[in-house]
């Protein structure tokens, strides 16, 4: 799985209570706002973090969300990177989970991962059954 050094990140959020979902969403929103993302992109980022935090809480009970600002690509675009990782049960069929409409938990739309992927510019997932799941997503800031 992915090695993480918390010191490399601007924000580290521990997810273990239901209320941590709303807190992480709020923290992500504030951070994206400070990075000067457009209001629409701030909302998309906050929503994606909300989904990631919920997945951790639902399936793994606890885990971490790491957020940082970085420069990406040859044009060095200002980018927000979000890493969500847990040591939960892992996902058996990653492809199916990402394609949308799939859920192992009741009372959800099953759009979690697919929705996150649509909201962000890049999406990467690693998961191993019995070991855990790591999701890395990025969104570039566009100049308008």
């Amino acid at each position: 799985m992915i090695e993480v050094n918390p010191q490399d990140y601007d924000i580290v959020l521990k997810i273990k209570d239901e209320s941590d979902i709303a807190v992480s969403r709020q923290m992500a929103k504030n951070f994206a706002q400070k990075m000067n993302f457009s209001l629409a992109d701030v909302t998309k980022i906050a929503t994606a973090v909300s989904e990631l935090a919920r997945n951790i809480y639902r399936y793994a009970k606890e885990g971490y969300i790491y957020i940082r600002e970085k420069e990406a690509g040859p044009e060095k675009a200002i980018t927000i990177e979000i890493l969500a990782c847990d040591e939960g049960p892992g996902i058996e069929n990653v492809e199916l989970a990402v394609s949308g409409g799939y859920t192992t938990s009741e009372r959800s739309l099953g759009l979690g991962l697919a929705g996150i992927r649509r909201l962000m510019d890049s999406f990467h997932i690693e998961s191993e059954v019995g070991k855990g799941t790591a999701v890395i997503v990025e969104k570039r800031r566009h100049a308008y």
């Binding site: 629409a40 909302t43 697919a114």
Partner: peptide
């Protein structure tokens, strides 16, 4: 519904 929320929901396919 705020416009940016509407865009987000629509993009997620909700």
């Amino acid at each position: 519904i705020q416009p940016q929320v509407a865009l987000t929901l629509a993009q997620m396919g909700i």
